[in-house]
Amino acid sequence: MLETALYFIQQLLNGLTIGSTYALIAIGYTMVYGIIGMINFAHGEIYMIGTYISFIAISGLIPLLGIEYLPLILIITLAVSMFISSTYGWAIERIAYRPVRGGNRLIALISAIGMSIFLQNYVRIAQGSRDIAMPSLIQGGWSFGPPEGFQASLSYMQLFIFIATFITMGGLTLFIARSRMGRACRAVSEDMKMAGLLGINTNRIISLTFVIGAALAAVAGLLLGLYYGVTNPYIGFIAGLKAFTAAVLGGIGSIPGAMLGGLLLGVTESMTSAYFSSEYKDVVSFGLLILILLFRPTGLLGKPEVEKI
């Protein structure tokens, strides 16, 4: 009985860990969609670039500066990674999306897919296609349960992922709800033309959206990079697909939806592996997506799109 409960708790924790990072990436998709109604397929690649920058910063920059205090290492890496990834996010918008924004939505979509392929190959050429590995920085954790039977465990790394994710998401929610820029974001999302007429610089707000999305992807890049300890130029594609699914599941365009969708997807995957078979985890999670879209086409927390006249 105890063992069954511990096993369930363990799988729940595993699912929440992976789910919270899906959620971080999903926010990038959902924010861009919420504001300009476009799916930024290059977003997964930003996450991949984020892992590379974190790895480079940790293994190159930090020894150069001679820092050994772990929290400081993490803060510097996070700052560097968020800054550079945001620059990528901003540049992608300027180069690939802004010039085609007025046209058909499909053009922007193709441009995004092209950008994604470009970034993947650019990193492949620059960094090589092999897996790059890094030793774990945050080790250890707690175990619960009888010493001879099954023990549930929570590693410090997992806890760090939860805390970092919730702080980041809380910060973002506050920013959108309370700040002047956040209010402008919401206004542009509601009606871009009207917001422009009322004196909001819509181009700047759209750039800001990309920058925020990229910064969150960089946070996810650092967290998952540290957690798994490996990266390669292809991880962005699958992570992007999963995060996109999470965003759609929660209702694309809705920030709380992306969080909920990410966690739900992570827990579903983990539970499928736990009680069924890991072969079918993608089948079940994408099956769930189809079911939800059949019965709630706008996703869990999405609002139906009102035709603006």
Binding site: Q11, N14, I18, L224, Y228, S270, E279
Partner: peptide, 20 residues
């Protein structure tokens, strides 16, 4: 006897299952 997906990064569920 189980399959995983090539390219996956997270095997924590599988490992917990083997532990159990």
């Amino acid at each position: 006897y189980e399959g995983i997906t090539a390219g996956d990064k997270d095997f924590s569920s599988l490992i917990a299952k083997m532990q159990k």
